[in-house]
């Protein structure tokens, strides 16, 4: 199980968190249809690092953006969610 450092609560067990989706799947409000479809239905899905949105569901309820390696599971960065952390 991962230890995830919630930006609001500090380090907590992964059991308190729920994975939501990847950052590249967030559809910008002014997206063209083709762009929206690509964002909704395709993923880079790298065998390496990617930015993911998780939620501290069973804790403070806050959203966060986590950069995590898909093989080693090493977390390299966690930020609270906000306009500056999303595309």
């Amino acid at each position: 199980m991962l230890t995830i450092a919630c930006p609001h609560c500090g380090p907590r067990a992964q059991a308190e968190f729920v994975y939501e989706r990847t950052v590249d799947s967030v559809v910008p409000l002014d997206a063209e249809p083709a762009e929206a479809v690509a964002a909704l239905f395709t993923r880079a899905n790298p065998r390496g690092e990617d930015d993911e949105i998780w939620r501290h569901t069973h804790g403070c309820g806050g959203w966060l953006v986590m950069r995590r390696h898909r093989v080693t599971h090493a977390i390299s960065a966690i930020r609270a969610i906000g306009p500056e952390t999303l595309p």
Partner: peptide, 18 residues
């Protein structure tokens, strides 16, 4: 299981999450 990153070698982005 690995379709995503193998297809990426041909420049494709798939509707798949591993």
């Amino acid at each position: 299981g690995h379709s995503g990153h193998v297809a990426a070698m041909a420049g494709l982005k798939l509707p798949v999450e591993s």
